[in-house]
């Protein structure tokens, strides 16, 4: 049985992410912020379930679809939102934007816009943990589409060869952009691709936050005990388009309606009493999450813009020549 505090944390995060992303959809429609916005509606249980099994200083990598990961990993809502608004006080000082929300001090190695860039970077962090005999858990998040990219396979092969206990977390949300998983997979199950590396893999219901948590927790201890990488495939559904503004014509309404029956938020609500939350608890959590999100967006809107010349900063750690135009 998981402790009440953790249950509360899980519910708070899962609702915060959903409300956050709904707000993002709204500001995207109203064209309040510039640039590409990729929301993770439907991925909340994976973000929160995995992160519930991690410590704040464990390492993760994320992608352009990172808001949920960042929120679950403990990044400040105000800073995430300000970044999306392009403000100086944003989590990346306005240099990254929505696609690159990442805070190293919260264990995020980066949110990479290049598909399949993350796994190898996490492999390196895990190698460091091994060499320094440290024990931080290392997790790379990526999508079903990423498993076709060479960079993923090279990282997987090395992780296995080097006995690196990292966790590959594949969010199989049914789509890579406008291409359905059914069409792009060569194997029956996505995780069958790990067979080539003789890598342990487990499949879980990505809509059920407690199942995700459970599987991840077990995988982490098994990986560390056996000194081996483990591949986790969590199945869910990408309710959002690839990016905000995507017409989603390739996602038939019938399919969306069917997926809604397993919406992770709906499941979490249905399961709440099983985990010791009563109606009042749930309502309180929901209200808190809403208020936090509202506050963060209000905050972002008041934040200062960067100066144009701020663009020249922090290209290098050390560069003896001034960078100017």
């Amino acid at each position: 049985m998981i402790e009440k505090e953790k249950v509360y944390w899980i519910y708070k995060k899962i609702f915060t992410i959903r409300f956050f992303e709904e707000r993002i959809k709204k500001i995207a429609k109203e064209k309040i912020v510039p640039g590409y916005l990729h929301t993770c509606i439907g991925s909340e249980a994976i973000c929160v379930g995995v992160m519930a099994a991690l410590n704040q200083d464990d390492w993760i990598s994320s992608t352009y679809r990172n808001h949920g990961h960042a929120i679950a990993k403990g990044c400040e809502l105000n800073e995430i939102t300000s970044e999306i608004y392009g403000r100086k006080t944003g989590i990346c000082k306005g240099r990254g934007g929505s696609m690159h929300i990442s805070d190293f001090s919260k264990g995020m190695l980066g949110s990479f816009g290049i598909v399949a860039a993350g796994p190898a970077v996490v492999l390196g962090a895990a190698l460091q943990e091994k060499i320094n005999k440290s024990n931080k858990t290392c997790v790379s998040f990526f999508g079903d589409g990423a498993i076709h990219n060479g960079a993923f396979h090279e990282a997987a092969g090395l992780a296995k060869l080097w006995d690196i206990p990292m966790i590959f977390v594949c969010e199989n949300n049914g789509y890579a952009e406008a291409t359905a998983t059914d069409w792009h997979l060569n194997t029956k199950e996505l995780s069958d691709i790990t067979k080539a590396y003789d890598m342990l893999s487990y499949i879980g219901d990505g809509n059920n936050v407690f199942e995700v948590y459970d599987i991840t927790k077990k995988a982490i201890s098994e990986a560390k005990q056996k000194n081996t990488p483990i591949f986790l495939e969590f199945k869910n559904y990408r309710f959002s388009g690839q990016y905000e503004g995507d017409t989603q014509l390739y996602q038939p309404q019938e399919e969306i309606d069917k997926a809604k029956q397993n919406d992770p938020i709906k499941l979490a609500k249905e399961n709440s009493s099983k985990y010791g939350l009563n109606e009042n608890d749930l309502e309180k959590i929901i209200n808190e999450a809403k208020a936090d999100v509202d506050k963060a967006f209000d905050h972002a809107d008041t934040q200062p813009w960067p100066q144009p010349e701020d663009a020249l900063e922090e290209v290098y750690v050390n560069y003896p020549v001034e960078i100017n135009t």
């Binding site: 510039p34 392009g86 240099r95 990254g96 960067p306 663009a311 290209v315 135009t325």
Partner: peptide
């Protein structure tokens, strides 16, 4: 007249500064 020796920043004031302009 070129971009500076930096990656392309996201935030509008910085990105506009990055891109050469009519004024320049």
């Amino acid at each position: 007249i070129t971009a500076p020796h930096t990656p392309v920043p996201f935030s509008p004031p910085m990105e506009d500064f990055y891109i050469p302009s009519t004024k320049k």
